[in-house]
Amino acid sequence: MFDIFLNVLGVLFLWLSVEYCLRHETAESLDDASLTPFADDPEVARRVELATGKTVKAVAPETAKSGWINLDM
Rank of each mutant, 00 (worst) to 15 (best):
1 M>W: 14
3 D>M: 15
3 D>I: 15
3 D>N: 13
5 F>S: 13
5 F>A: 15
6 L>K: 13
6 L>H: 06
7 N>L: 15
7 N>E: 15
9 L>R: 07
9 L>V: 13
10 G>S: 14
10 G>C: 13
10 G>H: 11
11 V>S: 08
12 L>S: 14
12 L>D: 11
14 L>Q: 10
15 W>S: 15
15 W>K: 09
17 S>I: 12
18 V>E: 10
18 V>D: 07
20 Y>R: 08
21 C>F: 12
21 C>W: 14
22 L>W: 05
23 R>H: 03
24 H>I: 06
26 T>F: 03
27 A>H: 02
28 E>T: 02
28 E>G: 05
29 S>E: 10
29 S>H: 04
29 S>M: 01
29 S>F: 04
30 L>F: 03
31 D>F: 01
31 D>W: 02
31 D>V: 03
31 D>I: 04
32 D>A: 09
33 A>Q: 06
33 A>F: 13
33 A>R: 13
34 S>N: 08
35 L>F: 00
36 T>E: 08
36 T>L: 05
36 T>C: 07
37 P>L: 06
38 F>A: 03
38 F>Q: 02
39 A>C: 06
39 A>T: 06
40 D>Q: 12
41 D>S: 10
43 E>W: 07
44 V>D: 06
44 V>Q: 10
47 R>F: 05
48 V>S: 01
48 V>G: 01
49 E>F: 00
50 L>R: 12
52 T>N: 04
53 G>K: 01
54 K>R: 09
55 T>M: 04
56 V>D: 00
57 K>A: 07
59 V>I: 07
60 A>L: 12
60 A>Y: 08
62 E>C: 12
62 E>K: 09
63 T>G: 10
63 T>I: 13
64 A>F: 05
64 A>R: 11
65 K>T: 10
66 S>C: 01
66 S>P: 06
67 G>L: 01
67 G>V: 08
67 G>T: 05
69 I>A: 07
69 I>C: 05
70 N>H: 13
72 D>W: 06
73 M>D: 11
73 M>G: 03
73 M>I: 14
